[in-house]
Design a protein around this nucleic acid. Sequence first.
DNA 1: CTGTTAGCGCCTTCAG
DNA 2: CTGAAGGCGCTAACAG
Lengths: 338, 338
Amino acid sequence: MSDPRHPRASGRATLSDVARHARVSAITVSRALNTPDKVSSELRERIEIAVRELGYVPDRSARALASRQSFTVAVLVPSLSNAVFVDTLRGISERLDPFGYQLLIGDTGYSAEVEERRLRAYLEHRPDGVLLTGQAQTEGARALLAHAGVPVVRMMDLSADGLCVGFSQIKAGYALTRHLLERGHRRIAYVAAQLDERVRLRGEGYRCAVREVGGDDPRLEVAVPDPSSVHLGGELLGRLLQQAPDCDAVFCCNDDLAWGAIFECQRRGIDVPGRLAIAGFNDLEMSACINPALTTIATPRHQIGVAAADLLLAAIAGEPPADGQRDLGFSLVVRQST
Amino acid sequence: MSDPRHPRASGRATLSDVARHARVSAITVSRALNTPDKVSSELRERIEIAVRELGYVPDRSARALASRQSFTVAVLVPSLSNAVFVDTLRGISERLDPFGYQLLIGDTGYSAEVEERRLRAYLEHRPDGVLLTGQAQTEGARALLAHAGVPVVRMMDLSADGLCVGFSQIKAGYALTRHLLERGHRRIAYVAAQLDERVRLRGEGYRCAVREVGGDDPRLEVAVPDPSSVHLGGELLGRLLQQAPDCDAVFCCNDDLAWGAIFECQRRGIDVPGRLAIAGFNDLEMSACINPALTTIATPRHQIGVAAADLLLAAIAGEPPADGQRDLGFSLVVRQST
DNA sequence: CTGTTAGCGCCTTCAG
DNA sequence: CTGAAGGCGCTAACAG
């Protein structure tokens, strides 16, 4: 009833369908596809034709199962709405795509629980490597990774152990605050939302710097756990101005908040930077376009993705990590808002 | 040499490792995990303990191979840098996560070739469904989908055949232009970048509307294929003002460009909307925050994700699509920029 | 260069 | 409710 030259009605063409069609053995088809130079050009051609005629698409599950390599890398970022992580993803993808690795991209919504859940889900794919943003947050997540035994590279911050690529969030926060101090500001505020590890560390850097000049004052800090947004930036500026009307500079934990703060100043007729200097963090594309252009910390997020991918590739290949902790630095971009 | 109660050194714990550990058969472990109510509570408990002790994580490849269901859905969007698609992804994820589906998320960079390549790669995972943005661009992509025989839902625009969820880009472009006409503008420009299907359709709508009042003029259109960005918005405004100094309103094909145009007007001292009205498309978060607040078309992108997921779920379940073409509409949001 | 054999880890029968 | 046998599609290891 069934024609052996054609794929079974029950599903798609398989390797043996192709093999039968090309009158070779299955393994030869496998080789023609994966290591073409190990197959004579004659058979290769016949096989290529069969593949095309049957519309054969290999099955990764079967391949992964048999070869014990999934050619898959799991990547977890806090949010896809944040351009910072999307730039990082692009760097990863640029580096991993050419090697045939496929990315399992997931966002955690800045939640440790979601992170663990997604991690578990992705580990079921037996990824060849895992890329994480920051530390694995929960005990469970760390246990999962330990059991899995896959190479892991952590991105964005620096840490004491394991492989990681990033820069010192503390130093960056410190550097930006120093810049404001050098501009002569003494009542410098820190406005933050989405209080993740990195935002906290930037706050640390800020506090370090203001303390050095005795300029620390709890009223100068506005921090809320809400998701960051431009709108929130305006709102938090209002709150800040209420609790510390004499502040003369604002360090926003990210650019989005800073934009919102600038817009709010425009509406209130507050001169930036004359009456109030405003600085952000990350140097997203728009920060150079807004009026006044935003002073901010440029972060090497794309490069972090590239380097993390390279590090992971090396780890997958079993190469000893020459420098497991890669500090890619940051740079202060001074524009008109300060 | 090897203790049968422990996973082999060569790899991670398998179902039979767990089975041995709990002194039951492998299939019972499988059932305890997938259909717990088909296993006595006693065995279930023993199995749960074994799972925990061994740190067992199921292997999706093996499961997919044996069950012929991958519980995976492939999603292709043009870009992750565009908040529009990220909002759509969120809608999809919200709907599909609870069912245990895992998303294979990929971006095409607005390229038809990349789309086909990614599609092929994702089909190797034997996804239970595919979510596409717009039409499958290439002949090859369409052939792949036809061969694969998986349910496909297309998002964002409307189309004649197959399952799709979106709204009429033409009508939206028309509606926005009508609004500008009703405001009394007669020299309305269309500024566009990233010329994908949707941007072109919006342009169609624009042209329809201006033609009705005899206001069409090629000098009023500035369109470049470059990736859209805020910076580009400013640049294109400059170009427009040069080739049509008398234009009195600008319809930007997306909000990013409109922001850039507004910033450029601020720098040039052009009054918005007094001298020049500016409108965008999509209603991203920032559009309500900028000064002047941006008039734009609010698009139901999150809802599109939700509805697309629902449609796909139904199609996977083999349910006949009651309404295969779902028009979710759009709405005009009039703010201060017009 | 090509083929055979066996098995990856799990689930679908079909039995009890 | 539990288990035994077989196979999903592919590739490793060995043969020739």
